[in-house]
């Protein structure tokens, strides 16, 4: 069956089954090219991004989302004096929350790419530095880091509060992002680098043309998750005198003492935002998968 065009040795009347058996005995294990299944990496919160085909999650997403919207609308309609006023006041924190979240996630991706590449590097020193950074960040509560970095930045350079907060958030999330990207890089089969190397590509050409595009695909879901975490954790900046959603809520409480009602609205706003975001990330992933 193998080679009609090629001369057959006369003593070869073997069945395919026998040939496969022989093949299995002779063929080496591809030591250098172990194939790995595409890895799904999730770091912080569990994956809560509903996809088509995951009926259970889609249903609970719908129930939660519409439930939250209905509750919020009812509260505002039936008790506008309390809730509509709270809503109008706290919603003005959204731009700050978004600004912090979006810029900080970009910063975190940037830092994460550098540390991710660094901790995959064979260079001992670079590797150690990245490792220490990750350990430091992991070992200190986010709130403490945030305040420390905020004050440290403030005393070193004169920058706006929001910029300091964004930098601080980026540094904190950068470590987790670095771990995600490191895992992503390591999930790319070794054979990819070898094939590129064998073709004469330089290390940087290999990284940018072969490793990075494949890594992005692997890590995008995890980055989406981080994005959602970031939206929530950005509420910590309220302690830094930035008027995000939570800060606006606390201001409102100090004026009206409607603490429970205000926090309910704040919670609903965050919930609705994260649910929308998780859906968007889900769509993005689906499109990514469709595009091969």
């Amino acid at each position: 069956m193998v080679k009609d065009t090629i001369k057959q040795p006369p003593t070869l009347p073997k069945t395919e089954g026998e040939l496969m058996e022989i093949r299995n005995k002779v063929v080496s294990n591809p030591f250098h090219t172990t194939k790995k299944e595409p890895t799904v990496i999730s770091m912080t919160d569990g994956v809560l991004i509903p996809k088509k085909g995951n009926k259970h999650l889609v249903t609970s997403w719908r129930l939660t989302f519409f439930g939250a919207v209905v509750v919020l609308v009812c509260l505002c309609v039936f008790d506008p004096d309390t809730y509509w006023k709270i809503f109008k006041y706290t919603i003005t924190g959204i731009p700050t929350t978004f600004e912090c979240t979006i810029f900080a996630i970009l910063g975190a991706v940037l830092i994460g790419t550098i540390t991710g590449v660094g901790s995959s590097s064979k260079n001992r020193v670079v590797n150690q530095i990245c490792g220490i950074y990750v350990e430091l960040i992991r070992g200190i509560p986010l709130l403490v880091q945030l305040m420390f970095l905020y004050y440290a930045l403030g005393s070193l350079i004169h920058i706006e509060g929001i910029v300091a907060a964004i930098i601080a958030l980026s540094i904190c999330f950068g470590a987790y992002m670095g771990e995600i990207i490191r895992a992503g890089i390591q999930s790319i089969p070794k054979g990819q680098v070898e094939a590129a190397t064998a073709l004469g590509l330089s290390k940087s050409q290999t990284f940018f043309s072969v490793i990075l595009p494949q890594t992005i695909k692997v890590v995008l879901p995890a980055i989406g998750n981080e994005f959602i975490s970031m939206l929530k954790d950005s509420s910590l900046v309220s302690i830094l005198a930035l008027s995000d959603i939570l800060k606006r809520g606390r201001e409102y409480i100090s004026r009206t003492f409607l603490s429970l009602q205000t926090m309910l609205v704040v919670a609903l706003i965050y919930l609705i935002l994260t649910l929308i975001l998780s859906r968007l990330v889900g769509f993005m992933e689906e499109r990514l998968h469709k595009n091969g």
Binding site: Q192, E194, A195, A198, G200, S209
Partner: peptide, 30 residues
């Protein structure tokens, strides 16, 4: 390496690139 081609047991094609781009990558870059 430019002068010595290599073919692997597990093919090692670049999955994110089309067949054509797999082939043209090195000639264009290198």
């Amino acid at each position: 390496r430019e002068e010595v081609g290599m073919v692997f047991q597990s093919f090692n094609l670049f999955p994110h690139l089309s067949v054509l781009d797999n082939i043209t990558l090195a000639p264009m870059k290198v």
